[in-house]
Amino acid sequence: MTFQELILALQSYWVKEGCVLLQPLDMTMGAGTFHPATFLRAIGPEPWCAVFVQPSRRPTDGRYGENPNRLQQHFQLQVVMKPSPLDFQDKYLASLKAIGIDANVHDIRFVEDNWGSPTLAAWGLGWEVWCDGMEITQFTYFQQVGGMECRPVMGEITYGLERLAMGLQNVDNVYDLVWADPPSGRVTYGDLWAQNEREFSRYNFERADVVHLREIFDHSEKSCLSLLEDHLPLAAYEEVLKASHAFNLLDSRKSLSVSERQRCLLRVRSLATRVAGAYYHLREALGFPLIQKGECSV
């Protein structure tokens, strides 16, 4: 199964399960959880089910394309369902079957994992799912997002596509993964992303303009607050994402002192919390429109 077939198979499986097929957000972010279709939609009583791939950036994980397992950008396939279905685990296991993982051949295990994101003021409980000892998925029941209790609870499944594919294709080096295998010739993960890893590792660690990043951070914060005053939580949230990524880059450039780093984290957290509150109130003012429309009543 090629990398792209893996994406297609998982997407069509979850679409059949009732998820809306969304697209990645066209912004830099650390994980699919930051996508508004996860973070914002987890807030409030409205039902919501979606599946999408999100390129996820972890600047400090860059290894100049030289490590077979580590990337500064990887792909997450994100599934969110609210309220979390009672058979969420079974649905997940059926998705593994759909990509050819037979649970009577492979050792699938749900291993306790408590997830928390200090910047998003969010936490949840669940598992990392192991397949033959390899972590392939994060499985989380959100308890709090943006500092707000999740009622009902959103369930989140995050597939680490590279790891999953490495197991499926039985390769030891991520760059050897077959992304596509058309008649015109095989395309590997390396063909597509090796140069990207090399360049962005240099950018993240050596070249990112620290002075400018600080400006971005300060400016995003200011702009987020002013957008909130104007009751534009969606636009305000994009400023949170900008600030968060600027913070991650400042971190990989090692340009933050200890106390500064802590302060910046708290600043992003405070913005995320405010946006969450504003989003909730706005949806409330609209009468939580998806409740009336959705067939899953809460």
């Binding site: 009577n104 050792d107 033959d132």
Partner: peptide, 20 residues
């Protein structure tokens, strides 16, 4: 490694664990 199933293909579980 102690798994939760007697696999129909033990070598798959072994290979996976060894890769990790």
């Amino acid at each position: 490694t102690v798994s939760n199933i007697p696999s129909q293909r033990a070598e798959a579980i072994v290979a996976g664990n060894e890769r990790v």
